[in-house]
Write a protein that binds this DNA or RNA. Structure first.
Lengths: 243, 243
DNA sequence: GCCAAGGGTTGATCCAGATCAAGAAACCGC
DNA sequence: GCGGTTTCTTGATCTGGATCAACCCTTGGC
């Protein structure tokens, strides 16, 4: 709901942040602070970005401030402007402090320097398309509770660490981010989270840390759980074998 | 809402239908009757399809019959299982009688036989991803009237023929298809269409023919009109210059 | 430790769109 | 043309989630 403020990228960065630096010929590294944005401009060349660390949302804001998070991107994901809808103000927002690599080459056409590389690229874009349509399914046809369960399943599987049956993770998205992703309003979402907490399916020891206590029960709440799991699997395969 | 019945593909086809025939080395031609489905099966190899004629929906049905049309595909579009979410029962449905080409090669990896071809493929998948996320934006954040206006704009631009200011076209989608695409219920959609008719923005001389009388007014109803127009433009460019 | 600001929660009320139900057109095979 | 079927329309009613508003909790600056 709130428009992400577009903070300048400069000034007092910590010593670890070396944004904008060339990393050999493997692209330019960009360190983003929380809420920092990269806006896709129509006239700019079509750049390809890879998420290295953190969590990035692809989002757009309508003239009247209605915001929709279109995709949540995790480390390893590739995104470009050409794979995003041409709406004004569309771009990437760091949900938490994150690192991106802007891949070399003026345009996508020259970014991939071999057939193998290109296949990997194709697979990544195809997977993103799959996630996007799954997301459309979720916001189009799931009840609010089912949507929340789907997102929590996704985050647990993409960001979580299994510890004795539970999945513990840093919650990368704020309540508003989650609401904007699920096309719910933050108040409704808060109620739903409270309900899941009351039912002991999840716990939140601090504001940014979440534990999924019973992943099976959570997954039983949404008809899309299996699909999320399968997509997660294909990411892992993609990371090793480019397919 | 209604489950598309999966009619067998055989028996009394018209003389023009020569489905399954090899078309040189350019793939296998598939003629689909209205409502005929191609189900993406997990275990099958990842095939690439091109829409040649007609209109195809990518859709999935939840166990309790909630159906969501994830994408509407027009001639020239490319789609594969790997670019679709891995939900059971996902597949392609012919909204009207259509022709598909199943591109040669066991898997996508070998379908593209050159870098140029591959770029074209990449561009097509990227564009589909863009359309999908735009769709998520529409069903996530637009009111029902805005959604209808967006879809009508899209169909007018993708299927319509401009005749003295109006756009006339065969309506490829049934009311139920439209409703499933827009995540609305068919009754609500019918009311909205009646309202647009009453306002003279559109006219429907027969059930399957529609005329957009005032495209500008229609586009003024939705904040995504410009984006749809831009995507349409990129299709046209893609058709001639591969990217 | 205190204060301010940003997030998150929760209750009360409201409304857009869903659901239910009954017809009315359009289309199809004969 | 005619019956049967599918598709579409429209009215009456209902409800899930939005909206509004107040409050509370956490965090961070000093």
């Amino acid at each position: 709901m709130t428009i992400a403020r577009s903070t300048r990228q400069s000034a007092d960065r910590g010593p670890a942040a070396r944004s904008g630096e060339h990393d050999g010929n493997r692209g330019i590294r960009l360190d983003l602070r929380r809420r920092q944005r990269i806006v896709f401009k129509e006239e700019a060349p079509d750049q390809l970005y890879r998420v290295e660390r953190g969590c990035i949302t692809l989002d757009a804001v309508l003239p009247d401030d209605r915001r929709q998070v279109l995709l949540v991107l995790y480390p390893g994901d590739l995104i470009s402007r050409s794979a995003s809808p041409p709406v004004p103000g569309i771009g990437l927002t760091a949900a938490v402090a994150s690192t991106l690599t802007r891949l070399p080459g003026e345009t996508i056409d020259t970014a991939a320097d071999g057939v193998t590389e290109m296949l990997r690229l194709h697979a990544a874009v195809a997977q993103l398309s799959a996630r996007s349509t799954l997301h459309a399914m979720a916001i189009g046809r799931l009840t609010s509770e089912e949507r929340v369960a789907t997102l929590l399943t996704e985050i647990a599987l993409f960001c979580g660490r299994a510890i004795q049956g539970s999945y513990s993770f840093e919650m990368p998205l704020s309540r508003d981010d989650m609401a904007d992703y699920l096309a719910l309003n933050p108040d409704t979402l808060s109620r739903l989270m409270s309900r899941l907490r009351a039912r002991k399916l999840i716990a939140m020891p601090t504001r940014n840390r979440a534990i999924v206590r019973d992943l099976d029960a959570l997954m039983a709440l949404t008809p899309l759980a299996k699909a999320v799991l399968a997509l997660r699997g294909s990411v892992e395969r993609g990371a090793t074998a480019a397919g």
